[in-house]
Computed example of a mutant assay.
Amino acid sequence: MTNITAALVKELRERTGSGMMECKKALAEAGGDLEAAVEILRKAGLAKADKKRDRTAAEGRIAIQISQDGKQAVMLEVNSETDFVAKNEDFLKFVDRVSARALQSGAATVEELLAVPLDQEGPTIEEARRELVAKLGENINVRRLARLETETATLASYLHGSRIGVLVEVQGGGAELARDIAMHIAACKPLWIRAQDAPPEVLAKEREIFLAQAEASGKPQNVIDKMVEGRVRKYLQEVTLLEQPFIKDPERSVAELLKEAGAEVIRFVRFEVGEGLEKTRADFAEEVMAQVRA
């Protein structure tokens, strides 16, 4: 039987991040061949990653990259199952490298990005993701990618910690105004730039809800109609960027701010970690024990 030394096990652990017993078994299976053992662990790890892919990943972080000339910007959401892993050094490095490659590669969708090599050569981002899943013991998901490109406008970004990110394209007004608008979007969560951007089906649903509430009041139909329209207008003021009071100066709206500066918001994207995902609740002790078991 091949002698599996502690030094060999240690080297394999450092290269793969796998547990000691897994490394010993892989080395034994490979007859002491380090490269063969690496391949055995890699294949086993990818198999484990496939088993974890359906587990909900609702924690994580947002990353933003803007090109040096300011003409391109990308924003990325990468999820993990727990906040514990979202703060892990390997996870953080993965997010940074993937966001940098997203900017460099020109990928427009998550699917395109996952097929890009993580470095100029070597495994793809998808392969690296699956290897990280195997190493950290949690599902990790590159969930969303946004890319903005412009020739004449200003691209600005705002990150609130690592959980809320905004990209905005502003024509005119300068970099400071664009950043202020990005910060406002992060804080106030507008859904659309202007009222006419709201999809008809969304407004129809809101009217339906407001109508049911108004009818419960027992007031005459003409009064109910006015109540519904008033509530729809109030709703649009709350969720439309141009109608919202500017966060730094609530006495004027964002529309008034832009008009004074001779500027226009062309488009924006806002990501918040885990929005729209149902998070499985677990306390911190359970997260730690899950890592220990892994």
Results as ranks from 00 to 15, higher is better:
E201H: 07
E201A: 10
E201Q: 09
V202A: 13
V202F: 12
A204N: 11
K205Y: 11
K205C: 08
E206Q: 15
E206K: 13
E206Y: 02
R207M: 02
R207F: 01
R207A: 14
R207L: 05
E208A: 15
E208R: 06
I209F: 04
I209W: 00
F210Q: 11
F210A: 13
F210T: 00
L211D: 13
L211I: 06
L211V: 08
A212S: 11
A212D: 11
A212Y: 07
Q213C: 02
Q213Y: 06
Q213N: 04
Q213L: 10
A214Y: 03
A214S: 06
A214H: 03
A214E: 04
A216K: 12
S217H: 08
S217L: 11
G218R: 06
G218M: 02
G218K: 05
G218W: 03
K219P: 01
K219L: 09
K219C: 02
P220I: 14
P220N: 12
P220K: 14
P220Q: 12
Q221R: 12
Q221N: 00
Q221S: 07
Q221Y: 00
N222C: 01
N222T: 10
V223K: 04
I224G: 11
D225L: 09
D225M: 07
D225N: 12
K226Q: 14
K226A: 14
K226M: 11
K226C: 02
V228L: 08
V228Q: 01
E229W: 07
G230E: 00
G230A: 06
R231V: 04
R231G: 06
R231W: 03
R231L: 05
V232C: 09
V232E: 07
V232M: 10
V232P: 12
V232F: 13
V232S: 09
R233E: 14
K234M: 06
K234A: 15
K234F: 03
K234I: 02
Y235Q: 10
Y235H: 15
L236Q: 06
Q237A: 15
Q237W: 03
E238V: 01
V239M: 08
V239Y: 10
V239C: 13
V239G: 11
T240V: 14
L241N: 07
L242F: 14
L242E: 09
